[in-house]
């Protein structure tokens, strides 16, 4: 595949469960494509050099910096952004925990942080505080001092574990 520098290419991907298409030049950053071409402005851009983590989205499930990816690289992939989190009945458990623990102030870095936390919680069911802090260290927040986020993630991990315990016990009993 080859795209000329000045060519606008059609990029199709699955954004938050829906197939979406738009046009991008080879050099268009994924974050710009999501925000300005597809209108998903919930993802923010804080440094454009991969350090602050504000622009983190999930690419095929993996939390990734959308400023360090080109739109053309996202062709055919599954993208999930902060807009995917809330459920019909309202905020997700993680969002609610962020609110409860005052884990955000200006909210600018929050979208990216939520996406990292979602992947982390998928992968680590029973995290220690040190693990949560390690994962969060890929994000910069200037407002909160991070405490609320750490508490929120630990809180959600605990609740999700508790919610799944009866099932697994059930299985054990069945066996």
């Amino acid at each position: 595949m080859h795209a000329r520098a000045d060519q606008r290419i059609r990029v199709t991907l699955t954004l938050n469960g829906r197939e979406r298409s738009g046009y991008a030049e080879p050099r268009t950053q994924l974050c710009d494509f999501l925000r300005h071409e597809l209108g998903a402005t919930g993802t923010h851009v804080g440094c454009e050099h991969g350090v602050c983590g504000a622009c983190t989205v999930r690419v095929d499930g993996r939390a990734s910096r959308s400023c360090l990816m080109l739109a053309v690289q996202a062709e055919g992939r599954r993208l999930d952004t902060v807009e995917s989190l809330a459920e019909e009945e309202g905020l997700s458990d993680l969002q609610q925990a962020f609110r409860r623990h005052h884990a955000l102030q200006c909210g600018f870095c929050t979208a990216g942080i939520l996406m990292s936390c979602e992947e982390f919680l998928d992968r680590v069911a029973d995290p220690s505080e040190a693990q949560v802090r390690d994962m969060l260290s890929g994000h910069l927040c200037r407002c909160t001092g991070y405490t609320g986020m750490v508490q929120a993630v630990l809180d959600v991990a605990r609740t999700r574990r508790e919610a799944t315990v009866p099932d697994s016990q059930q299985e054990n009993n069945d066996v």
Partner: peptide
């Protein structure tokens, strides 16, 4: 902070 223009290639081999 945006990249300068380039051709994009995705070789298959």
């Amino acid at each position: 902070m945006k990249p300068a223009a380039f051709d994009y290639w995705r070789p298959s081999s």
